[in-house]
Amino acid sequence: MTKPPAVLLLPALAGVAFLLVPLAGLLVRAPWADLPRQLLSAEVGEALRLSLITASLATIVCLLLGVPLAWLLARGDLPGRGILRALITVPLVLPPVVGGVALLLVLGRRGLVGQYLDEWFGVTLPFTTTGVVLAEAFVAMPFLVISVEGALRAADPRFEEAAATLGASRWLTFRRVTLPSVMPGVVAGTVLCWARALGEFGATITFAGNFPGRTTTMPLAVYLALETDPDAAIVLSIVLLLVSIAVLAGLRDRWISGPT
């Protein structure tokens, strides 16, 4: 390997420091002695449990809707596919708080759809746990769709033709041939989607509010605790950091070792 020029090396090292020092700071400032008590406290436990449940439910919603959507984008022969893909990826770059406002306008009690949900079924979504799930799914689904679509595009469609010549319907082909062959992409997309849902803040607090036990997920709890109990905020942050590292470790084959 050649010696990198200083003009590149120095900014690169600064970049590493910029990314890693704050995380190290979190560990340095952590109230280690007090950690077990904090971790086992009711507030932390409640927020953690709520986060895990809502993120998992949101991921299931994303899988049920996102995998067929990815298939449509990758294989479907529909006009305006490029535009559709662009629209679907909007939540990826949209500030989550805007997503939250949008959800509120549509699904809120006075919203375009929400008023009928309320009127006909007596269902209200904002400021409920279901609302948290919806907000998380809204923000996280593009991650899953993009990942699965990429895997589907990379998969050789001739295997689907081979299945067709053997008499398989398109649904059977999808289930038995296509889906298993893109499983690594689905798993990666699911993990990314789940991690994104777990860390969701902006859309959740806008659409679902911050009600402990009902809508206060871990990120919201961190924000809340920072005002009142900074040590608790650090503990919650460390838990989220550990979850993130675990996710990275789970995806190491795909990301850390580079493209294979």
């Binding site: 001739r158 295997f159 081979a162 299945a163 067709a164 010549t165 053997l166 038995r176 298993p180 499983m183």
Partner: peptide
């Protein structure tokens, strides 16, 4: 008729065996 409704068998050049 689409392929799945024809009474055919195909051996493809690179076989296209289902890897999983």
């Amino acid at each position: 008729l689409p392929a799945e409704r024809r009474p055919i068998g195909v051996v493809f050049q690179d076989y296209l065996l289902f890897a999983h």
